[in-house]
Nucleic acid binder design. Structure first.
Length: 506
RNA sequence: CGGGCUGUGGCUCAGCUUGGUAGAGCGCCUCGUUCGGGACGAGGAGGCCGUGGGUUCAAAUCCCACCAGCCCGACCA
């Protein structure tokens, strides 16, 4: 660049949010579109974030009694077809394997051959194939509960892919459990919802509304779907994790039956719950600014980057040595019970190019260490949650001992900022006109960032949901778990048990 | 999957109307001066113009088909 730009990312969030999002992902080298339609390449920095999420969530699953296992990628069509509502929900987005060989034809082109007797569906989710195993494993109430999770990829043939938010293939975890009683299964559903809410809040610094999906938004085949809904910076909602109470629907379809304490045959009560790589996109949209990604320290692949400043050849050795020493001291420290993730960037670039790369990547703390600092025994410290030009001279020893505390403060600050943003854009609405006004952009041709979450009463009917979706593209994101007083539906005047969360959504 | 727009070095795009053998800026490489907030100079590499067919002496440019991407709908974690 010949001229310094005002912001590292253009357009800005205000100018064009969807385009800004794409540019941030690219500038930070999180991921890029691949040659395969709808599929993305997750680059090391993006995958590092996912690996941290994975490791931390996995520990939470273990702590709640779950173990990991792995089930096949391919699901026989007949398995998949066992649960009618389930099939209907996924039918339109399945990839199906129909052949087992490639042959070269007369023109030299590759063609599939050897048709399979039974086509295989590439898993869009694994209820049915896991159910088949569970049916074999469960005979007595003594075999229950089964509490398993798998980390894997799934395929849903989506029509409009967006990096991380909606891709044809994505990575996730899916937990699948079987219980002896309805109460236990319902309890499990709530427990895992709680895990997701905690994870989003404490690890990703994202406040979320936890609640129940309406009938029209729930998982195909579920009795009840619970969700956590986060707000991102264009004030839209995004589903960041789900937990389903499946009743006996899938147990009946898969034949998961056991002899209960009374000696009678009974179907198991199952749950399933998942969180996906979409969370990486959610973190970007929730925290990133016009200079790039801003990462919560707990999920940052690198928490502190050390930038050696080596203007003169004669001091370079000394500076690098000091950087190594600093890195070693920092790594001996812990934040959130894990050693600090520290990296030294030794590349010799002119100007601030190197610095800006790390700003765009969102590393929480940048530390410059040069000859002048060496003399003063200090470092220049920059926090990504503060304006990018800010720099603070700190005595090295003090920085080393305070680093975990600073990371904690950044983590907290990001959460508080996100919470404040969400609360500022969440409105309690008690009449239809205000509701319509809230969700109508001033410039329909190129809608500005508008709306947010509306907490409003609703009569519980599908008709109203459909009408609002049709009129405003607004849907019920969830029926919150938290209490609220009864009232009157703002669209019909009919009785309403509690306020529900309305928003435009990803 | 329906409607609209777009495919030209890594990125953003000009050239296409009026066919004549490919350009700019940024990025990249080399050398030098620089380096504590997106540096400067000089030199250099890199494109069968999305794919396939057609028209023509000649196609990035005209015609047809297909593929991909973006936006708007429907669908979704």
């Amino acid at each position: 660049m010949t001229k310094a730009e005002k912001t590292a990312i253009s357009p800005t969030r205000e100018q064009d949010f969807p385009e800004w999002y794409q540019q941030v992902i690219r500038a930070a080298e999180l991921a890029e579109p691949s040659d395969v339609r709808g599929c993305m390449v997750i680059r090391p920095w993006g995958f590092g974030i996912w690996e941290n999420m994975q490791r931390q969530l996995d520990a939470m699953f273990r702590a709640t009694g779950h173990r990991n296992a792995y089930f096949p990628l391919f699901i026989p069509l007949s398995y998949f077809a066992k649960e009618a509502e389930h099939v209907e929900g996924f039918a339109k987005e399945c990839a199906i394997v129909t052949h087992s060989r490639l042959e070269v034809d007369a023109e030299g082109k590759m063609k599939p051959s050897s048709p399979l007797t039974e086509p295989l569906v590439v898993r869009p989710t694994s209820e049915t194939i896991i159910g088949a195993s569970y049916a074999k494993w469960v005979q007595s109430y003594r075999d229950l509960p089964i509490l398993l999770n798998q980390w894997c990829n799934v395929v849903r043939w989506e029509m409009r892919p967006r990096l991380f938010l909606r891709t044809t293939e994505f990575l996730w975890q899916e937990g699948h459990t079987v219980h002896e009683t309805e109460a236990e299964a319902r309890e499990e559903t709530q427990r895992m919802l709680g895990v997701y809410e905690t994870f989003a809040r404490d690890h990703c610094a994202i406040p979320a509304f936890a609640g129940e999906k309406s009938e029209s938004e729930k998982f195909p085949g579920a009795v009840q779907t619970m969700t956590i809904e986060a707000m991102v910076q264009d004030r839209k909602a995004i589903q960041a994790g789900t937990s389903h109470f499946l009743g006996q629907n899938f147990a009946r379809a898969s034949g998961i039956q056991f002899q209960n304490r009374e000696g009678k045959q009974e179907f198991g009560w199952t749950t399933s719950w998942g969180m996906t790589t979409r969370m990486v996109g959610t973190v970007v949209m929730a925290h990133a600014d016009d200079d790039g990604v801003v990462l919560p320290p707990r999920i940052a692949p690198t928490q502190i980057v050390i930038l050696p400043i080596t203007p003169k050849e004669e001091t370079r050795g000394q500076v690098l040595e000091a950087c190594d020493k600093l890195a070693a001291q920092l790594r001996a420290n812990k934040y959130a019970n894990l050693p600090l993730e520290v990296e030294i960037d030794r590349r010799q670039f002119g100007g601030g190019v190197r610095n800006w790369e790390w700003i765009k990547k969102g590393v929480p703390i940048r530390v410059e260490l040069g000859p002048r600092d060496l003399e003063k025994n200090s470092v220049e410290l920059s926090r990504r949650d503060q304006p990018v030009k800010g720099k603070q001279s700190t005595v090295t020893g003090e920085f080393v001992s305070r680093a975990p505390e600073i990371l904690g403060s950044i983590q907290q600050n990001l959460y508080q900022r996100a919470l404040k943003f969400r609360d500022a854009n969440t409105r309690t609405i008690d009449n239809k006109e205000e509701f319509y006004d809230f969700f109508t952009p001033k410039n329909p041709a190129k809608p500005e960032i508008h709306g947010g979450f509306a907490l409003a009463h609703w009569n519980g009917s599908r008709e109203i949901e459909d009408k609002i979706k049709n009129d405003l593209k607004v849907t019920i994101r969830c029926i919150p778990v938290s209490d609220s007083e009864p009232g009157r539906c703002i669209f019909t005047g009919q009785a309403s048990k509690k306020r529900v969360v309305w928003a435009k959504a990803y």
